[in-house]
């Protein structure tokens, strides 16, 4: 808790300094616009990061196919909606597709490479991402299309920026997930088992943690999260297969901010990334490079994390 607060403090301080520096001479209302807009983008990164961390903690797999899974979900939902299927059913079907894909990958493919080291497991999931990307690009023409939710139409004004209910829903859902999953891990039996697995797999299996069941649960949960993320990306970013698939890379940056473990830190990190990226629009030399913000922040976090470590030993990850 103390660590989270400290991180929050550092981030707010950093963003404030950056805002004051870049926004010098600009009216405060302009700054407000960019901050609110940045929070909306940051919550996308955070949501993606949360899904990655939930799975990584329980199974040790950093799933590069999470973006692709969500992409399939939103395309499935779009297709059904376009065919006249009732919207909530189409969204449900999208989530179901993501669930099935994640479970299938976790159960039949990831399980067979359990003996590989974490990096190889992560990198191999790119293979699955490419398969899904190829499949969707093959099935769908590249005509421009738009995925919409009814909540896009309603909006509230925050600091002069209209924020749609979808974006509020996204921020609410991300915060809710961070709290909800936190409680699940903290309070429930399956959460305890997931934490045990995250700490030490071998000892967990020795003391009778049903690894297969826990992992399947984790894959399922991550599939649903990917599906939801995909629907949000499809609505708020754009409905293009390659774009949604590779958004997983900045989401990894958000996951790194949480050290692949802490969900509140992922949330803070993701939001910070979004706001910094948005604020950089005010900087003339850096504005066309502003999507670098997530990577630079994540790299700084990695450096800070390993500050003071002198040696590394085989077997440590």
């Amino acid at each position: 808790m103390r660590e989270t607060l400290r991180a929050l403090g550092i981030c707010i301080l950093g963003v404030t300094v950056l805002g004051l520096w870049l926004g010098a001479g600009k009216p405060a209302s302009v700054l407000g616009l960019f901050i609110v807009s940045g929070l909306a983008v940051g919550s996308l990164y955070a949501l993606g990061g949360v899904g990655l961390v939930v799975l990584y903690r329980a199974t040790g797999v950093l799933n590069l196919a999470a973006g692709a899974t969500g992409m399939v979900a939103v395309f499935a939902a779009w297709q059904l909606q376009d065919r006249g299927v009732l919207a909530p059913l189409a969204w449900g079907a999208g989530l179901a597709v993501a669930l099935v894909l994640a479970l299938g990958y976790g159960r039949f493919i990831a399980a067979r490479m359990a003996w590989r080291e974490p990096v190889v497991k992560a990198v191999a999931s790119l293979g699955f991402a490419l398969m899904l990307l190829g499949l969707v690009s093959f099935l769908f023409s590249d005509d421009p299309r738009k995925f919409e939710l009814p909540t896009d139409k309603a909006a509230v004004m925050i600091l002069g920026l209209r924020v749609t209910v979808t974006r509020l829903l996204l921020i609410g859902a991300t915060v809710g997930l961070v709290i909800g999953i936190g409680l699940l891990l903290e309070r429930s039996r399956i959460g305890l088992q997931m934490r045990a697995l995250a700490n030490n797999r071998r000892i967990s299996s020795l003391i009778g943690v049903p690894i297969l069941r826990v992992e399947t649960m984790a894959w399922g949960l991550s599939g649903l999260l990917s599906g939801f993320t995909g629907l949000m990306f499809g609505d708020l970013v754009r409905l293009e297969p390659a774009v949604i698939t590779f958004l997983v890379i900045p989401c990894i940056a958000a996951a790194i901010c949480g050290r692949l473990a802490s969900l509140p830190l992922v949330l803070i990190g993701g939001m910070t990334m979004g706001v910094v990226e948005s604020l950089l629009t005010l900087s003339q030399p850096l504005k066309d490079l502003r999507p670098m913000a997530p990577y630079v922040i994540a790299a700084l976090v990695l450096l800070a994390m390993n500050r003071g470590r002198a040696l590394t030993f085989a077997g440590e990850e």
Binding site: P118, V119, I256, Y295, L302, E317
Partner: peptide, 14 residues
């Protein structure tokens, strides 16, 4: 100071 996945992710950020 890094190993394994974290080092890999550092390079990925670059």
């Amino acid at each position: 100071r890094m190993r394994g996945l974290y080092l890999a992710l550092m390079t990925l950020m670059v």
